[in-house]
Simulated scan of single mutants.
Amino acid sequence: MSTAPRPRLRHALGALTVFLLLPALVACGEKVTGYGDETVSGFDGATVSADVKKAPTLKWKSAISYPKDPKVKTLTEGDGEAIPKDRGVFAKIYIGNATTLDKEWAYESQAAEGEELPADKPWSTILKGAKVGDRIEAIVGSADLLGEGGNPQMGIGNHDTLLVVVDVVKAAADKTPHDVDATELPKVVEKNGKPTGFDFTGIPKPKADDVLKRVIVTEGDGEEITTDQTVTANYLGMTYGAKKPFDESFSKEAVPFALNQVVAGWTNGLEGVKVGSRVLLQIPPELGYGSQEKPGQGGTPGIPANSTLYFVIDVVKAEATPAPQ
């Protein structure tokens, strides 16, 4: 199977995906608060430690009433850069159940840089005006954060009040494709009318924090692609300055893949492109394979860690993704 559109773990699809794909730390508390029991409103029901150098500690005073909308406050203000508007963040997150009053966090991040949180509600509300280094506390309804069913794996019901602590680590990469002049990307080398590689002559070495660059070489006349579709395409991928592709399908046959299950550079770079188009993409590491190193297969070169990826993609068709069986 191809290297380029290999399925990946996508944390940016929404809060529910974030929590279902990662191990949940479930604590079984003895005290259960019903809807008729005494509760308090807002942040008076709990104390959360403010030292961002340490994982937050949690002490309950009382159950917290279910909020109509998220309530947010900054416990500790960071001194890092402000998170750009409409940009997701990487953050360490901690979730406590303010209805059952379990002593342990129902969920806490394990990765050093935390999870990538999307710029969608309720995260956009919680992270409005956030800066790197902030510790933010929020009171959120379980339905708003996890959907109507809650999350039984985390011991969270469908109408539980959640206390969420967010330690902001860094801004997520800009996923917006930037349409550039064709001279900014390498030329496609062809043989017998099919792409065989890229010519990087005159193209400067890319920076790790470059944006997602796109060139529509030929615009098709089909429907615009949406991220919930399965796209069939021919493609060729190379790293900067490489002599050979690390993967390609032009010598074989077009490959179908669910657009929301590939590297973010493909997902965002192909969204809105018309079927029948030829597209060039320059994908920065954070929207590709990041710090992962991909070994070569069958005599093809591998992908070094933190590589910028270059693709030529011919979109053959796009159709609805089959529902999971």
Rank of each mutant, 00 (worst) to 15 (best):
N306W: 05
P70Y: 10
P7I: 04
N234V: 05
T74G: 09
N158E: 14
Q282D: 06
K71Q: 15
G157P: 06
K274W: 05
D86W: 05
K317C: 02
P301S: 08
D44G: 12
P177H: 04
V48Q: 07
F311S: 11
G14D: 13
D247V: 09
A91N: 02
E184S: 14
F246V: 11
A258K: 10
G220Y: 01
G237N: 08
E286D: 12
K59W: 07
D247Y: 04
T267S: 15
V211C: 08
D79F: 11
V18N: 02
V132I: 12
Y66F: 09
D210L: 07
V72Q: 05
Y107A: 01
Q297C: 09
L281N: 00
D209S: 14
L127C: 11
T218V: 15
D160P: 04
I156V: 15
T125L: 13
T33C: 10
I203W: 04
T321S: 14
T230D: 01
S142R: 01
Q110N: 11
Y310W: 10
V273R: 05
L162G: 00
A63T: 05
R6P: 00
T201W: 03
L75Q: 07
G265K: 05
I83Q: 03
F19N: 01
V188Q: 03
K274G: 06
K194Q: 11
G237C: 14
S277G: 08
I139A: 01
G193H: 01
P84K: 12
N158W: 10
W60I: 02
A264Y: 08
G299E: 01
G149T: 10
S62E: 08
V168L: 03
